[in-house]
Amino acid sequence: MKIYSCCGNDSIAKKYNCAVCGKSEFEEKEVSDNGTVYSFTKIHIAPAEFAHIAPYNVVLVDLDEADAKVTSRMEEDVAIGDKVTLDRIEDGAYIYKKAS
């Protein structure tokens, strides 16, 4: 997972400017995809484009090697604190799975 950092803030998404210093150059580093479930929800009522896969889990993953989180989708049910890892990237979404 690529992390963009500036002024002590890590993010998996690059912004145009840092909210603290205003600079547009971010430090880039590659970290492990592994993380811990920070929180989650199971979505039963989905928008039209996701209705065919509902219900599905949306899981906020706290990355182990950065102070950043990733919103992912998971097929398995999870609890806060579970260890998870990236399974695949599908249609622009991070699909996570439980770490074995």
Partner: peptide, 23 residues
């Protein structure tokens, strides 16, 4: 964003928040 692609919905955000609040 990738989080929209993951299927996060508007209510879903508050569901994720609520489960962490309970925690």
């Amino acid at each position: 964003t990738t989080e929209k692609n993951a299927g996060l919905t508007f209510p879903g955000f508050f569901g994720v928040l609520a489960n962490r609040y309970f925690h």
